[in-house]
């Protein structure tokens, strides 16, 4: 990355504006954003080579938090260290912050209007359909692994969360610990 050494302000501006543009106009979540980031910074600018970019995206997807933010952290850091990271993260989070600030002011003004409330209610039905449809797709994907453990985890997590109202954070920590334990044992050759 030190090969060309373009001017610092230039690089920072391109990190910020590139991420800002992608973040402001990309609908459809982290995976879509990751594709655009790869297009911009690998294919177009050639700042990060393709195979490393794919690894960074995989890394961003395995870390907690929003995938878009994680990608921004890695790309910014890779291109220009900590300052680069700040520039690209700012570029990523400013558009949604600005848009949602505007939306929340409008929401406070119009949500009580009878007709607006009806439209929102109808859209809620759509959102419920989207979320349940996505979760069924995800569940089918997990079940295709044909692992009794994963199937049991699906059932157990659903029962504990939905019927017993066990705290979400608690369930995720439990899964995390189980995952670490299993990965550790598998590495040691105790399992499989």
């Amino acid at each position: 990355m030190h090969a060309k050494k373009p001017r610092m302000t230039n690089v920072l501006w391109m990190l910020f504006s590139g991420m800002f543009y992608i973040s402001a106009f990309t609908f459809g979540g982290g995976f879509v954003i990751a594709t655009f980031v790869k297009k911009k910074f690998s294919d177009e600018l050639g700042w990060i080579d393709e195979s490393e970019m794919l690894d960074l995206i995989a890394l961003a997807q395995s870390a907690p938090g929003a995938i878009a933010v994680n990608v921004a952290i890695l790309v910014g850091w890779k291109v220009f260290g900590v300052i680069g990271m700040i520039a690209s993260v700012l570029g990523t989070i400013l558009p949604p912050m600005i848009i949602l600030t505007a939306v929340s002011f409008i929401y406070n003004l119009i949500a009580d209007n009878m007709y607006v409330a009806m439209v929102l209610k109808g859209m809620q039905a759509g959102v419920a359909a989207i979320i349940l449809s996505v979760s069924i797709d995800l569940a089918v994907k997990v079940m295709k692994e044909k692992s009794i453990l994963y199937d049991a985890l699906i059932v157990a997590a659903f029962v504990l969360s939905f019927f017993f109202k066990v705290n979400v954070v608690f369930l995720i920590i439990a899964a995390l610990l189980l995952g670490v334990a299993l990965a550790f044992f598998r590495r040691k050759g105790v399992l499989r």
Partner: peptide, 28 residues
């Protein structure tokens, strides 16, 4: 290593999303 851990977390996350979806549906 991270990928293996994620595989175990995913089924749990899927169920949590489904449960939230059902609560949203029952609200609607």
């Amino acid at each position: 290593f991270m990928k293996r851990i994620l595989k175990v977390i995913r089924p749990v996350v899927v169920s949590l999303i489904a449960a939230a979806g059902i609560r949203i549906l029952s609200n609607v």
